[in-house]
Design a binder for these strands. Structure first.
Lengths: 350, 350
DNA sequence: TTGAAAGCGATACCAT
DNA sequence: ATGGTATCGCTTTCAA
């Protein structure tokens, strides 16, 4: 800001009152202490002068910055902006502002982001970056700093967290495929050190077992990241060497896209030869080729609830966990299996 | 933060020195004033105690919060996260942190966002929300607050701004279509009160004129928003009543998608019946059906440059403008025109 | 080279 | 109901 902004002192002088009286008017809790008439007079002067409280100065005294540090893996991954919006909108209702930093899933960047935000005196953190075992989460918890996890959870469940029901999602996914007639289903499941990856894989195995469906050795393939490239790589492995299958449950939409790419590269078609189902229902998923069948995850709500959990802790309430439902969105990447079981490891097309 | 954090005073006491000496060590400019030996001793103690400066307190004194308010139309629009990342990465190098708020293109929300950030003592603003005539921009400028515009510019060019070369983009778009053999080209151009919308429309008309191509009355259609819905609406109008055309330059990818939707709804095909080209090369544009021919805009760079311009002003340098190039990405939504000129307003399919 | 003290803008406790 | 004053954590000018 450039022009010297108007301060409490300016208002006090204009009102011919002491600065502390003016201060009292500002806060709802203390406003009752001052004569209603003078209070209103001060209100008028504040409006006239266009006074805006300096929240930084206030924070220095109250030890509350009214800001929340938000660490996000990657804002350019289209699901996270929804999380951030949910956080932002909910926080705003309580006068809080999120400070968002990207980590790129990089520990160094995460550290720097954390430090930068901490030195800005954020009142706590919301993280979408948790690993199943996460030193940063432990550190924050140990320091007694308010924390809410969103999307990804830690294994020890020490922290407040909002996640979506992966069990439900995988069940819906598998049942959908089974209903279409699939029996040999593969799982390209995402990183094992991240709760969503592990939960989707575990859920898959559980549900398959519960339905009495055998999962052939080698049909469950974790990846090293939720990326198109990993989807391609693992799908190629599956097609090259694994047992036959007619459908795959992918750990998220990016992996699903990668799987489809790998299929296409060999002249195989989705869903005619192999059905593929993803997770996230990410932006434009319904407009891809083919439109993706996927599990919708309400990311905005995840963010909103995470903000709630965060605010809860500031109010002294104990941490708790919230789980939101996933819902199946059937589009065109899934269909009945081919009559002659597909994906019989054809040689590379051409 | 919960545990009482270690302060400068703690460090000073531990060192048996005065707080101001310790303070001097912290800042590169004043560090020279203190005995190198004691400076190093203080460094050690700082490390040992895990002292982190309280930037809020520092800001109160220096009147620099080292934060920048960033107002974004809509973070869930996949181009803006790239802008934000560019801003964030560049700002970080100078120790600045962006505070991001969404406006939803809503004036009220914009005001609230601005106020919230201003009261947090941001050192200035970066806006992606500018209208061609924008009261908020004027206000910020009039107050002498550092400001950089990104993506969208104001007509009076008073502010520092980073935009992409719409003229170049439209030229590339039109030339591409002309080379394919199109002559009757429509323009679904986006809102006129936003610089990108207006510039793309103006560029279109200019380039068409320069190539000696007549644009039939009614083939240039501004929209009220950069949305799929608007694309559909206007494309329907075009197909219902306008003169014949074989291609359309859409104001952005969302509009292009809407156009394609409208086409499909009538049993018309893109690109066989009508070629469509968009702007932005947004996330997944290459994986839509059909993959979109579009103008790539380097949004990350736009954000990075905007941060540079912002920092420039803090350093007292005068505002300037930067323009970055757009590049044509040819995919599958454009093709030679049909032999029998398409889009002859067929009755609604069915 | 280091110490002392004022002050950034606000809050909150103690007095009156 | 209002005023006075210390203080939050740090920077910075002035002294020593």
């Amino acid at each position: 800001m450039s022009q010297r902004p108007v301060t409490l002192r300016d208002v006090a002088e204009a009102a011919g009152l002491h600065i502390s009286t003016v201060s009292r008017v500002l806060s709802p809790e203390t406003r009752g202490l001052v004569n209603e008439k003078t209070a209103q007079r001060i209100d008028a002067i504040i409006a006239e002068l266009g006074y805006e409280p300096n929240r930084v100065a206030r924070g220095l005294k109250t030890r509350r910055s009214m800001t929340v540090g938000v660490l996000i893996n990657d804002l350019t991954n289209p699901v996270f902006p929804y999380v951030v919006r949910g956080i932002e909108d909910t926080l705003a209702k309580s006068g809080y502002t999120p400070l968002v930093a990207n980590t790129d899933g990089d520990l160094d960047r995460q550290r720097r982001g954390f430090d930068a935000l901490a030195s800005r005196q954020v009142d706590g953190f919301i993280l979408s970056t948790a690993l199943r075992e996460d030193p940063l989460v432990e550190e924050i918890l140990d320091k007694g700093i308010p924390l809410a996890l969103v999307v990804r959870n830690v294994d020890n469940h020490r922290a407040a967290a909002v996640t979506s029901d992966e069990r439900l999602g995988t069940r819906l996914a598998v049942e959908h495929l089974v209903e279409l007639g699939h029996g040999a289903i593969a799982c390209v499941s995402g990183p094992e050190h991240i709760s969503t990856g592990a939960a989707r894989r575990a859920g898959f195995e559980e549900v398959m077992a519960a339905r009495g469906l055998r999962v052939a050795e080698g049909l469950v393939r974790p990846t090293t990241g939720f990326t198109i490239k990993e989807g391609q790589r693992v799908m190629n492995e599956l097609l090259d060497g694994g047992p036959p299958f007619t459908a795959v449950v992918a750990g998220n939409d990016m992996l699903a896209i990668g799987c489809i790419d790998a299929l296409k590269a060999r002249g195989l078609r989705c869903p005619e030869d192999v059905s593929i189902i993803g997770f996230n229902d990410m932006y434009m998923a319904g407009r891809l080729t083919p439109p993706l069948t996927t599990l919708h995850v309400p990311y905005y709500d995840l963010g909103a609830y995470a903000a709630d959990l965060f605010l809860d802790q500031l109010a002294g309430r104990p941490p708790r966990e919230i789980t939101v439902v996933q819902s199946l969105i059937v589009r065109e990447s899934t269909a009945p299996p081919p009559v002659r079981p597909a994906a019989k490891r054809p040689k590379r097309a051409g």
